[in-house]
């Protein structure tokens, strides 16, 4: 296998790891199920494409703006969650996915269906990054995403999200401003997804509305559900498996939606906590093994 191919697969896997970890904040912690996560991904990609191609900014100068834009858009797109919850929120996130896709398709400012092409590779000390360099850059952002997300998993904000995600009435009685924390969840999740979008845009070199369709949202959710909602290890693992699997088994690539949809449906039915989620059969088995050595106190969330 040529090294370039491996690095490319690694880069895309890394981008999807960032996306899955970002969805974990929203859907794993705050239990706001989103079937429109590709919209946040798209906004990051388009924001970076426009800032670099149309406004001539460098990747590095554009990136903070991209994070700012996606955070703000996340706040805005999170507003429906204040009015609707559960099934209706899922429906409205699907709607958002289509709305965002349509805006990029129908407004010439965003390139319409011709998309935006000629997005430059990020430069490092005056030299455009190559395949290996970009893989390194992606890896850096994956590590940053995991580290910051891991830190967040130990904060009051995460605890508040877990609480209202399960029971909004009880959470309010604990002094939690549920509306504010829902918006936080959307904003944080969207900010990470924006970084993933920017990486995607600059690696591929072009963005088209079709890159960020509803099927993409299903992919991302399937990765998180497979790995285990509510855990970072699950998010990373799910992205790794579902992104690598089609590379190993070429035939799967032709049936990508069948695989993603099938995994989503089967996992929700039989193993809703995912393979590595809290209380999954693998984690229980592992804890039983380890339990003989250490006390049960060492939990995922102390």
């Amino acid at each position: 296998m040529p090294i370039g191919y491996i690095l490319t697969v690694g880069t895309f896997t890394g981008i999807f790891m960032i996306l899955t970890v970002s969805l974990n904040v929203l859907t794993g912690y705050a239990k706001q199920v989103s079937l429109g996560h590709a919209a946040f991904f798209a906004i990051g990609a388009y924001a970076s494409a426009i800032l670099t191609v149309k406004f001539g900014l460098s990747f590095w100068a554009a990136l903070p703006c991209v994070v700012g834009i996606t955070t703000l858009v996340g706040v805005f797109l999170g507003l429906p969650s204040l009015r609707v919850s559960h099934d209706f929120l899922v429906l409205s996130t699907i709607g958002l996915n289509f709305i965002v896709g349509s805006v990029f398709r129908y407004f010439s400012f965003f390139g319409g269906s011709m998309g935006i092409v000629g997005i430059p590779m990020p430069e490092f000390f005056g030299h455009p990054l190559g395949t290996a360099g970009f893989f390194g850059l992606t890896l850096l952002f994956v590590i940053l995403t995991i580290l910051t997300s891991f830190y967040f998993s130990r904060t009051w904000g995460r605890l508040a999200m877990e609480a209202f995600g399960e029971d909004e009435v009880a959470a309010k009685a604990m002094g939690i401003n549920v509306a504010k924390f829902k918006i936080y969840a959307f904003a944080i999740s969207s900010a990470y997804a924006g970084i993933a979008g920017a990486l995607w845009a600059h690696y591929v070199g072009s963005v088209f509305p079709d890159n960020f369709g509803f099927d993409r949202s299903i992919d991302i959710l399937a990765m998180l559900v497979l790995g285990g909602m509510g855990t970072i290890r699950g998010a990373v693992f799910g992205a790794l498996v579902l992104q690598m699997l089609p590379e190993g088994l070429r035939v799967i690539q032709n049936y990508r939606m069948l695989v993603s949809g099938g995994i989503l449906a089967l996992m929700i039915l039989f193993q809703p906590m995912g393979l590595l989620g809290r209380g999954s059969f693998l984690v229980k088995g592992f804890e039983r093994l380890r339990g003989r050595l250490v006390s049960h106190e060492a939990e995922d969330m102390p």
Partner: peptide
């Protein structure tokens, strides 16, 4: 909160003064 441990349940409440400003972080 059934997904949380007994201790975490109490922590959620004890966090009440951290749910403002930069407290959540």
């Amino acid at each position: 909160f059934t997904d949380l441990s007994v201790l975490q349940n109490v922590l959620v409440a004890w966090g009440h003064r951290n749910y403002y400003g930069l407290g959540p972080f």
